[in-house]
Design a protein around this nucleic acid. Structure first.
Lengths: 343, 343
DNA sequence: TGGGAATTTGAAACCGCTTTGGACGCCGCA
DNA sequence: TGCGGCGTCCAAAGCGGTTTCAAATTCCCA
């Protein structure tokens, strides 16, 4: 059942039927009702491809996934983020499209997306320091918003980010207040912008208290469980091991905990742990009392906020970019305690 | 730059240019080269919407996400599965589209997808027992493949599944061989088909050894960390607690471990644990020696296999359905040991 | 040397929708 | 009575490709 058939059944022109269904004013109320009834009856809904060819809008939002390492997608954070965004898209009638870039040439991927008209806008995930995508997208004039920021990217662009610097600074201060001096940082990949900011916050807190940072206590890699475990085990074996650890995600924190327990130590007593908690649905930080003391910020919520922002930009691409900086809470759980007295 | 402009530049008809670019044989080799060079030079690539309107193929694959509970998406398994599938789509020039269904009416969602022509085929995730989607899709004639199976769904359809019954049977037998008799099952939601099969395997093993199943040792819910922890804590507080636990995923197993350790017990000694391991990238089961004894089957690989199968079906929708049953390995880690002797 | 086959190209129809530019009838007002 | 304006509706021109059908050219061989 397409528009032509429907209009023939009704004895009307395609024009009128189309207008009736799209809520244009210049159609008789009675006619409109007839049309709507017929559409319902015959289960008609317009062909998306034809509509978008005619209007120039595709009603879909793109998420580009770099293939080489499919970091984004397999990262458990991805699901919650995307689910948040998907909720908004659904409400507004948008679909969500994932494009898989074969190799590093994201520039080409975006150019294609723009030219092929597959999407109306894109969300940029996992921005790196000085991320080239931002320049490409502004040049192409394809509406976009960034989840996070990219230091060094000159342009004025729209983003939503957590105040990573401040939250990790606060977490570090919290540990310093508890008397810890040997505080380790198990960070995410440091070419990621957020990881840089977290490290900056951590260093800032140490500096203000006159604690000299120890490079052997600063680790950085992808935020997996195995990595958290590996680095922790490694550091606990040092002659002067850390008494506190800052982890970048629940997943790596779980590895941290495993290593601590394997070493026969008690978390929150022998070694304190603070993690960043994205409030993943499947990995809640405990039900009543938090398992980990944590800097908390919902990535699901971030997905929603970003999606809404993007749809606004699509509506009015010339508007000045918006920026939202979310503050993370510091919630106290059972994984932190006073520094053990060296005796 | 569109086809018309390009053809004018070349002084050729749109027909010829289109043919040259799409590899039709009836075009002069020299002409083809000229066209290809010009296309490269002017950075031309055909508009996806127009192409798909003309051909009737959208070159995108749909994944439908039930909105109510966005289980699928936030499940960490989702990312790895989808990444596997995305790899295949990318290689074959397909895009991946997520549709967000507002409420339970998936029937309508699929009907729309079909009628609007948004996708060429869909992957059905998380099939329930007697899943209605299968009937709807066969009726609509929209190519699809199912990740898992659905008992009771009459039709003959294409699927890829892990032999859940057998793998959980083997795991249970493994524990029985170690002398365990009070074996708990912390299952996924039991309206999910895979959970039913796992339970069946578990019960089968018990029955063959003459062990009467204890309903208080059989739990079922969404496979989160908190849930694994909660149920384990609960069961360990029983007057006659289990000496072994079968968990449905790495995530819940982590909760299980936390509860065991909180109870002051040792995993693999006081309580044995076997989990199913989907080989999630961010949650590997240890690096060298597995953390958990586990039934192992890569969900990433399953994603690939399903995607390939779906593309085959799209190619030839009339072909007889394919079915692939993957066997899970049973890998022995450090979370299992002989049943503690009751003294 | 002529004619049928093979090769190469093009005009135009079509995919299913939106939207522009009228057309038509009717009303109200001068 | 005449005419502008309003309310409704429609024919047709896009949107940017693919594909059918036919034409023009070249080739080959009797």
């Amino acid at each position: 059942m397409n528009l032509k058939q429907l209009s023939e059944i009704l004895g009307l022109s395609q024009t009128t039927v189309s207008r009736a269904l799209n809520g244009y004013p210049e159609v008789n109320a009675e006619t409109r009702e007839r049309v709507e009834a017929a559409a319902r009856k015959h289960n008609y809904s317009p062909n998306r491809r034809a509509t978008s060819l005619a209007t120039g809008r595709s009603m879909t939002i793109g998420h580009v996934i770099p293939a080489s390492t499919q970091h984004e997608m397999v990262n458990p954070i991805f699901g919650d983020f995307v689910a948040g965004a998907a909720g908004v898209y659904g409400e507004e009638g948008y679909d969500m499209l994932f494009s898989h870039v074969t190799d590093g040439d994201e520039e080409r991927a975006y150019t294609d997306l723009k030219r092929k008209g597959t999407v109306d806008g894109v969300i940029v995930q996992g921005p790196k320091v000085n991320d080239a995508r931002i320049e490409v997208l502004t040049r192409l004039g394809l509406p976009f918003v960034v989840h996070g920021r990219s230091s060094g990217a000159g342009q004025d662009y729209s983003w939503v980010d957590v105040n990573n610097r401040r939250s990790f600074k606060r977490a570090t201060e919290f540990l310093l207040d508890l008397g810890h001096r040997r505080i380790a940082l198990i960070n995410g990949l440091e070419d990621m912008d957020f990881a840089q900011r977290r490290r900056a916050g951590y260093l800032e807190a140490l500096a203000e208290r006159g604690v000299t940072p120890d490079p052997t206590l600063m680790r950085s890699a992808e935020m997996t469980e195995v990595y958290g475990h590996h680095e922790t085990r490694d550091m606990l074996a040092l002659s002067d091991p850390p008494t506190a650890i800052l982890a970048a995600s629940m997943i790596s924190a779980i590895g941290v905990r495993r290593a601590i327990e394997e070493a026969g130590l008690t978390i929150g007593k022998d070694v304190s742990v603070i993690t960043h908690d994205d409030e993943l649905s499947y990995l809640r930080n405990g039900q009543d009392v938090p398992i980990f003391t944590a800097t908390r910020s919902s990535v699901h919520q971030a997905g929603r906020v970003l999606a809404e922002m993007l749809l606004r930009r699509i509506e009015d691409p010339t508007a000045v970019p918006e920026q939202i900086l979310l503050e993370a809470e510091l919630v106290v759980g059972r994984s932190t305690g006073p520094a053990p007295t060296g005796d």
